[in-house]
């Protein structure tokens, strides 16, 4: 069976998930002794093509077309590549850009779509593992179709780093007609006074804090510990803290010595921003909260009881 994986890049560099797609794709191709094709669309495809010449890749297709991601170009190019390569499995990243073209491609090609897979195997058909209810359960999904489109979650497969001996081949594609969407530019957000990425100790607050008024409690804790205050997304969405305090996939990636998560469940998009902390500590009422899976120390308890006691310890 042939696997076609689509690389992800942005503003001049390949994103990590591109290297993970290679090991995920190789895993499936190995199951049937097939070939792994990787495609990279737009940007500096010559440089990207060389970087994607990795162990396990048989062919790299480079599609030259503009600098940055545009979903109309991606959708068209992936569909054209699909016709050319004729893969059994079409692998794409479950990145924000993946969300912007993979469903359109699957629908246009009439392929069943399994999104956000964290593991899979192939035995005549694809069996995938994906989470539901914000990581509370794992589900098994079986696909009873010859061909399938899958998007993979970042950080679940090892990244392939070793150079291989793939054939690199340019694939001619140009969209017909005008594009219905135009990328006009990019903007870095979340600047400002505080840089949470500089902090050695972060006290990070989540939805468990319930009310804006209660933020005082964690501010006091941060003061007592000489720490900086950061947060999960809902706190920023609610406007209780500015965007520069948000940790996670769409916020900041932090690597402090100590990360104290207070009332944070540990959703994947949050963990993406803090799993590199040296010591992770969680205070949460839910013993099953995923944050405990990555924590070094934890208190299963009510933050409104524990935090005041902790403040007292440092006064």
């Amino acid at each position: 069976m042939t696997v076609l994986a689509i690389a992800d890049h942005r503003r001049g560099s390949l994103r990590d998930v591109s290297y993970e797609l290679v090991s995920a794709g190789r895993q499936l191709a190995d199951a049937t002794g097939g070939d792994l094709h990787v495609a990279v669309i737009s940007g500096n495809v010559e440089e990207f093509g060389e970087k994607l010449n990795l162990t396990g890749v048989d062919t790299v297709h480079t599609v030259e077309n503009g600098e940055e991601f545009n979903h109309d170009v991606y959708a068209g190019a992936v569909e054209a590549l699909y016709d050319e390569v004729d893969p059994t499995v079409l692998l794409m990243p479950n990145s924000v850009n993946g969300l912007d073209y993979a469903p359109a491609v699957a629908n246009a090609l009439d392929l069943p779509l399994v999104s956000d897979a964290v593991d899979f195997s192939y035995d005549g058909g694809l069996t995938a593992i994906r989470e539901m209810y914000g990581s509370k359960v794992e589900t098994t999904i079986e696909v009873d179709a010859e061909r399938v489109a899958v998007t993979i979650r970042g950080g679940e497969w090892p990244a392939v780093a070793d150079t291989g001996d793939a054939e690199i081949s340019a694939f001619d594609y140009s969209p017909d007609g005008d594009l219905g969407s135009r990328v006009l530019g990019f903007e870095e957000v979340a600047g400002g006074d505080v840089d949470i990425t500089d902090a050695d100790v972060l006290v990070s607050v989540g939805r468990g804090i319930e009310e804006e008024e209660n933020l005082e409690l964690v501010e006091e804790l941060a003061d007592a510990l000489g720490a900086t205050l950061s947060s999960s997304r809902p706190i920023v969405d609610a406007g209780w803290l500015p965007p520069n305090r948000q940790v996670g996939q769409s916020g900041k990636v932090v690597t402090p010595d100590i990360y104290l998560a207070v009332g944070i469940s540990g959703a994947v998009q949050h963990v993406a921003g803090m799993k590199g902390a040296d010591t992770i500590i969680a205070i949460n009422t839910d013993p099953n909260a995923p944050i405990f899976d990555i924590a070094d120390y934890g208190i299963v308890g009510d933050l409104f009881e524990v935090v005041p006691e902790l403040i007292e310890q440092f006064e």
């Binding site: 399994v114 069996t127 794992e138 589900t139 098994t140 969680a282 070094d296 120390y297 934890g298 006691e309």
Partner: peptide
């Protein structure tokens, strides 16, 4: 596409959990 299984993920936690009431754990 069929859902054929659902399970609670095995905890990968090797966290040290402090035991006791709020004062003791703190």
């Amino acid at each position: 596409i069929a859902l054929t299984g659902m399970s609670e993920p095995e905890s990968e936690s090797d966290a040290t959990l402090f035991e006791g009431d709020a004062e003791e754990t703190a």
